[in-house]
Design a protein around this nucleic acid. Structure first.
Lengths: 300, 300
DNA sequence: TAAGGTTACGGCGATCGTAACGATC
DNA sequence: GATCGTTACGATCGCCGTAACCTTA
């Protein structure tokens, strides 16, 4: 048994058990992968992959159990390298942030700027995706840390830290009926609505509110992206329901924002990263910046 | 980085950082060990051992942190092998039991016999030692499972299962004054006492009882071994305080046993094994047998 | 027949062992 | 000077790559 065999099992897992794909990913030739797998299975004395002819189609029950240990080993191996690099120079490195559009645009700028001030040597990669994809990026180590509101609490393999709490709000053009008077769900329902896609930025809480009151909204546009919603609100297509902190009093002075905290339960944006994963000092400091920025957030 | 380098770090840890000892243990030549360590440190980019001249004298702070991951990797590696072997044939294997004399002689015979009936293919190695040594044997993987009363609850690296609860008892020759009448600590203190050594078989609870009552006993003989105590009790040297279940109504018919549960707090015998360590099915069944035997234990 | 996997074989590089040397008690 | 660790060098063994072959959609 050696570490490249362990690595191979991980790569196979992430590539549909395709030996040729795995070979490609590992920058070696297919036959080498084939042999290494045979050697490993021979050493264990029992196959760890289910086969259909020569093709691998899944794990055996032995294989499934072993993959847990494989994940542990790979994690620890990566940790060793990260720990050492961090020890040598904690001012140099890479930080992969996975987050949604709303966080990236309305929450992260301030903490990221401050972080960059302290750690100019750290290259920051920010990737935007759906919460589901973010979690996947954590597991495949394409991201070190994820910041989002949905899904992330359900995965037991993640460490999840609460970051900040926020409410939805309505945005409408000036002079729109909803810019004045009390807002109820009933009144809201009388307008065409523009809001987030399923699985994005607290959309689940909107659904909860509707289900609790046995209501429906006429959602005519769902986007992952607050700016898209605002754009169509400006065009007069309807009423936008966005995250409160996504209203920018300067940029959005042509829109009227109305709090919806009395109608829709609050949403919690969280920070997540892999359990048992060593975070370099600078990443820990980045999380600190996030938490500081969260406290400074204006309450809408 | 490769698994033998990881293994090397573990072996060094267990051999006072001696390269020559490590080489011996790993069945390779010293120079090879020296080079592998250099390669590994070079790969990390920073030394993981503190050195005095050429000698290794300890871990650097980087090294200390890395050793945690090394332990994880070694554990997972061993688990893979154990899981595979267990999967192929769960009726074959080795079981290393570490325990104290008292457990080995008075508690284990029944469950071990039953276990052997079910798993004739498992070779059982039983090693007796002090509780402190037992724990050490678990950590160095010289034992799979430990059964004892003392110390074992304090180690956070162990899974500890309560097994059974018992009380101390007095044994004296027939016609001895203590064979009749009520027994108090004061009365006990008027006799020379023979009991367990410090750190053995509930001795700590005897101490607790004495301290609580601000008393002392005249302990003229302390042994790790119940049979030694009984032997000298038979010779008339004094009063034996032993574990209740260590009185054998057949073998010890020449002695009188008197319960001490009103004077000395009860002791708990536990089963312990390494956290995150995969136990083969047969070992899990052995633990089941222990728990069954514990329930069948006569209450003294 | 293309794509994916296995088997055979040759070459290269990693790692070991021998051995000579260096340091430290 | 004995013990422990390092360095140099040759030999071996493991692992990769090429290539031919096998199997299945």
């Amino acid at each position: 048994m050696n570490l490249s065999q362990i690595e191979l099992l991980r790569v196979l897992q992430e590539n549909n058990f395709s030996l040729s794909k795995a070979a490609e990913k590992m920058h070696i030739v297919q036959s080498a992968v084939s042999r290494q797998l045979q050697l490993f299975e021979a050493e264990l004395g029992s196959p760890i992959y289910e086969r259909q002819g020569k093709k691998l189609i899944g794990l055996t029950s032995l294989g499934r159990r072993i993959m847990e240990e494989v994940a542990t080993i790979n994690m620890a191996k990566n940790n060793i390298q990260t720990i050492a690099a961090d020890f040598i120079d904690s001012n140099q490195g890479v930080l992969h942030i996975a987050t949604t559009h709303t966080q990236a645009k309305y929450f992260l700028p301030k903490p990221i700027l401050r972080f960059r001030g302290k750690y100019p040597g750290i290259r920051i990669y920010m990737v935007e995706a759906s919460p589901e994809q973010l979690i996947n990026k954590l597991h495949t180590r394409k991201a070190d840390i994820a910041i989002c509101t949905e899904k992330v609490g359900e995965d037991v393999g993640l460490v999840v830290k609460p970051c900040y709490e926020w409410h939805h709000a309505v945005v409408v053009p000036k002079n729109h009926p909803l810019s004045e008077g009390e807002i109820s769900l009933d009144r809201l329902a009388s307008f065409p609505i523009l809001t987030y896609s399923f699985g994005f930025t607290g959309r689940s809480n909107i659904e909860t509110a509707l289900k609790n009151n046995d209501m429906e909204l006429d959602i005519i546009l769902a986007a992952a992206d607050t700016d898209v919603i605002k754009t169509y609100v400006r065009l007069g297509m309807g009423v936008g329901i966005i995250a409160g902190m996504a209203y920018d009093s300067v940029m959005d002075h042509d829109l009227v924002v109305r709090d919806l905290s009395h109608l829709i339960p609050s949403s919690k944006t969280k920070i997540a990263y892999l359990k048992n994963n060593y975070l370099p000092v600078y990443t820990q400091h980045f999380i600190d910046e996030l938490l500081i920025a969260a406290k400074e957030l204006p309450v809408i």
